[in-house]
Write a protein that binds this DNA or RNA. Structure first.
Lengths: 196, 196
DNA sequence: GCTAGTCTATGACGAGCGTTATAGCCAGAG
DNA sequence: CTCTGGCTATAACGCTCGTCATAGACTAGC
C-alpha cells in the first residue's frame, strides 16, 4: 500500500533533515505518489503525517526492544545500541532518530511532539521494566533506563557531527558494563550509593 | 555591538526551532537590526551566521566547563548538567542545544556541521582531560566523557518532548555517581552505586 | 454497463524563504 | 566644508512551502 510508503518515507526524511526541512512534496515524490494522494491519505496535513511517522518509527524500535529484552536488559540495551549503530553507519552518518528530530523543534505540532514523548517514554518503560525484573529497584531502573535512552540519542548526534562511530561505541560499552554490574553482581547489589 | 546580538539571537532561535526553521529575517527582527545589516555583517549568508552561532554557543559552554572543572571532573559534570537544566526549565522546555540542532540536519552547511563537531569534541576533550588528571586511564576517560556529553544532549531532548525535567535529573545523578566512583573512591572504583 | 467511491492528476493561492541590488543616511577624517 | 565608508532602508528576484479545489481515471458491486 502506498500509504505506508508515505509514512516510512516521511520518517526517513525527518530523521535525516529534521521535520521542518521535510516537505510534503518531496515525501510524495520519494514515495512515488502524487501530491494529492498525500492529502487524501492524511487529511490532517503535515501534522498528521509527521505524527504518524514518529509513531511508526517509535513502534519499530519498540518491537526490536521487546524481542531482545527477553534475554535480559543487557542484551536489550546492546540491541538498542546496535540498531542505532546500523542506522548511522549504513547511511554514512546522514540519518539519526526521527523522534529526536521532532522533539527538538519548537514549532512541531503538539500531536507530533506528544508522539515523540510517547516514543521516548515507551522505550524507557520497556527498559526499566526489564531491569526491575532483574532485581533493580524501581527508582534506579527508571534512572538507568533514562540514561540509556538519552545517551543513545545523544551519541547518535555526536557521531553524525563528527562523522565517526566512536562516541556511540564508547557509550554502548560504558552502559553495558554499568547495567551488567547493576543487575548481575550480587555482591554489589546493595552497595551504598554515592551521591552529592 | 549589534553584530553580536545577531549571533546570539540566531543561536537562541536555532536551539528552539532548529536550523532550517530559523530565518534570517526573523533573526534580524529579533535583534532589532534591519535585514540588510545581516548580509553586511555576514556576507557568507545563512551559512556563516549559523556557523558563528554554533561556535559562540559551543564556546560559551566551554568556558563554563573550563571554570568548573578546576574543582575536578565531578564538579565539572555537575555544572554541565546544571547549565542544561537551567536552559530547559527557564524556557519552559522550549529551548535545547543549538549544537545538537545543527548536527542532526542533513542539509546544514559543511562549515556549520564542522563547528558542531568541534563543539562536541571540545567539551568531550575538556572532560576527558580532567578525568585523566584524576587518575582515570586515557581510554576510559574518553569513553566516560563521550557518555556525559551524549547523555546530557539526549536527556535535554527527552525533557523537551516530555515536558519534564526528570530524565535530565536522573541522568545527572547516575553520571555523577559513576564519575565519582571512577575517580575518587579506590574501594568503590569497580562498583555501581544504587540510588535510593 | 452503470454507478459509487477511492485514488490520481494538475494547477492554483498566498506566504515565506535566501539572496541581491540600490539608494540613502550619518558619523568622522581631511 | 566636503568626502568617504560603514551602516540602514527598501524593494525586488526566483523559488519552495502548506494547503486547497477540481476534474479525471480507475475499480468493485450491482
Amino acid at each position: 500500500m502506498s500509504r505506508e510508503q508515505i509514512v516510512t518515507g516521511a520518517a526517513d526524511m525527518i530523521r535525516r533533515r529534521g521535520l521542518n526541512a521535510t516537505s510534503i512534496r518531496e515525501v510524495a515524490k520519494h514515495a512515488g505518489t502524487p501530491l494529492g494522494s498525500t492529502y487524501h491519505y492524511f487529511p490532517g496535513g503535515k501534522t498528521q503525517l509527521a505524527t504518524e511517522a514518529v509513531q511508526w518509527a517509535a513502534e519499530t524500535v519498540s518491537k526490536v526492544l521487546t524481542a531482545k529484552l527477553r534475554k535480559g536488559p543487557v542484551d536489550g540495551v546492546k540491541a538498542f545500541f546496535a540498531l542505532w549503530r546500523q542506522i548511522v553507519t549504513e547511511t554514512g552518518f546522514q540519518a539519526g532518530c526521527p523522534v529526536l528530530a521532532v522533539a527538538i523543534e519548537e514549532n512541531a505540532s503538539p500531536q507530533a511532539l506528544m508522539a515523540a514523548a510517547d516514543g521516548f517514554r515507551a522505550w524507557s518503560a520497556q527498559l526499566a521494566a526489564s531491569l526491575e525484573e532483574h532485581g533493580v529497584s524501581p527508582a534506579r531502573a527508571r534512572s538507568l533506563a533514562h540514561l540509556c535512552v538519552s545517551a543513545a540519542e545523544g551519541a547518535v548526534a555526536l557521531c553524525r557531527a563528527r562523522r565517526s562511530i566512536e562516541p556511540l561505541d564508547d557509550v554502548a560499552a560504558e552502559l553495558t558494563a554499568l547495567l551488567h554490574a547493576a543487575t548481575e553482581d550480587p555482591g554489589m547489589r546493595h552497595t551504598v550509593p554515592i551521591r552529592g
